[in-house]
Amino acid sequence: MPEHRRADARRNYARVLAAADAEVAAHGAGASLEQIARVAGVGSATVRRHFPTRRALLEAVSRTRVEALCARARELTGEDDSRGALLGWLGEVLAYCVTARGLAVALAYDHEAAHENSCSAALEEAGEPLLRRAAHDGAVAAGVTVADLITLAVGIVLATEHTPDPAAHAQRLFHLAVAGMSPP
């Protein structure tokens, strides 16, 4: 939120974001924008003024979680086991997506507007050194990209979110996919 906005606009933004965080946590990416406005004590036009699209709202709600994942990628970059570091980080991305309802949708690629997805762009940038090092060490097949890995994690989360135990099912599919990601 730009700091040059009026104080009341900044307060409204913060209230809408807090309400959105709670509603997305409770109801997922499909949380009602009208309910978010009610909880924040503002009109639905105020919500739409701050967040013109649902994706913009989900990205804002997910920003803190994404920043934590980016910081974790930086922490893991110096690990001796480059494959373990990459897979550990990707497993954390997967776990966050499973537990943070709405994050998978925020990370999902809209191929028409992929350049506008700030969450995915931040994770790609953070994960690139991990992937580059693992590829250099021969621990990952040539041609694998961070975008591929994020798309894989998002796909797994979206495919398992309505199963009886989404976390366990997502981890199982992730481990199956990792075997396919490995070099011959």
Rank of each mutant, 00 (worst) to 15 (best):
P2D: 13
R5D: 00
D8C: 09
R10F: 07
N12P: 00
V16T: 08
A18C: 02
A18D: 04
A29K: 07
A31I: 01
A31N: 09
E34C: 02
E34S: 04
Q35C: 11
I36Q: 11
R38Y: 14
R38V: 14
A40G: 07
A40R: 04
A40Q: 02
G41I: 00
S44H: 04
A45M: 09
V47Q: 09
V47K: 10
H50R: 03
H50Y: 09
F51Q: 00
P52N: 02
R54W: 00
A56L: 04
E59D: 12
V61T: 06
R63I: 07
R63D: 15
R65E: 08
V66H: 08
V66W: 04
A71N: 10
A71K: 05
R74D: 15
R74Y: 01
E79Y: 05
D81F: 04
A85W: 07
A85E: 03
L86I: 12
L86V: 02
G88W: 12
G88P: 01
W89P: 12
W89G: 06
W89A: 03
E92K: 11
V93L: 01
L94K: 04
T99K: 04
G102F: 02
L103R: 03
A104F: 03
A104W: 00
A106E: 04
A106H: 01
E112T: 09
H115R: 07
N117F: 05
S118I: 05
L123H: 08
G127H: 03
G127M: 00
G127S: 03
G127Q: 10
E128K: 07
P129L: 10
P129V: 05
A135I: 04
A135R: 10
V144P: 07
T145C: 15
V146D: 15
T151W: 13
G155W: 04
L158M: 14
E161I: 09
E161R: 14
T163K: 10
D165P: 10
P166T: 14
A168D: 13
A170T: 14
R172A: 13
F174V: 03
H175W: 11
H175N: 13
L176M: 14
A179N: 08
G180H: 13
M181T: 13
S182N: 04
S182D: 15
P184C: 09
